[in-house]
Computed example of a mutant assay.
Amino acid sequence: MTAGTPTRTRLTPDERRSQLLDLGVRLLADRSLDELSIDLLAEEAGISRGLLYHYFGNKHAFHEAVVRRAADDLVAQTAPPPSGDPLARLAASMTAYVDYVVSNYAGYLSLVKGAQGGNETLRAIYDEARSALTDRIFTEDAQGDLIPDTPVIRLVVRGWSAMAEELVLSWVADPAGVSRAELEHVLASSLPALVAAEV
């Protein structure tokens, strides 16, 4: 080997699979799930289709793994700050949610439509992510300073989450004169207002 020739590091199978999933998530950011093919990922990764099938089995398993990774990323990236005023933490989480949807619009829309379209696997991943996003509102506001934990309020939070998702997806598709600051204000202020109507 000559000086200046880069050395290749051999990855473990788990590391390689994780690397391929990360690439799949990046590709999903600006294309739909249907456009995310084994051929595209193989080409982008510089590997054979056969190796991808070795790691994922088939196209559906590959899509499921990529969507699951993307959903995990959504939950992690939208986590509120660990401390501070509950309203400020909610606002920070909603800002991060808007950031995520803006950066990953096509892929996120694919997940939502796939879940609505009857794909049971996508529906399960979607439901898990939605539950993680809504449940943490209660676990991270343990004193109930902002959101009391009751069955009615849990239902309100679930409905608010669906509304927030629709607002953000619609705004990204067509802002219609609404600024991002206005959108984020509606998202962060609407939940406490809905809860107050029930308390």
Rank of each mutant, 00 (worst) to 15 (best):
E43L: 07
D73M: 10
E44A: 14
R26A: 11
T78D: 03
L40C: 04
G46P: 04
G46A: 12
F56K: 10
L41G: 05
G24M: 07
A88T: 11
R26F: 08
T78P: 10
E35T: 09
N58I: 02
L36P: 08
P80Q: 08
G46S: 09
I38L: 15
H60Y: 14
S93M: 10
S93Q: 06
Q77K: 12
S93D: 03
L90W: 05
L52S: 03
Y97M: 09
V25P: 00
G84K: 08
A61I: 02
E35I: 05
D85I: 02
Y55W: 04
V75Q: 00
A92L: 08
Q77M: 12
L40W: 07
E44F: 05
P80M: 07
S83D: 12
D73N: 12
L74A: 02
R26Q: 13
A92M: 12
T78G: 11
I38G: 02
V67S: 01
D72G: 15
K59P: 00
D30E: 15
A76S: 13
T78K: 01
D30I: 00
D85L: 06
T95Q: 12
A88C: 07
Y97L: 06
P80V: 04
L40F: 11
Y55T: 02
E43Q: 13
H54K: 11
S83P: 01
G50Y: 04
L51T: 14
G50H: 11
R69Q: 13
D39E: 14
R49Y: 01
A96W: 10
L41H: 10
A42Q: 07
L33W: 00
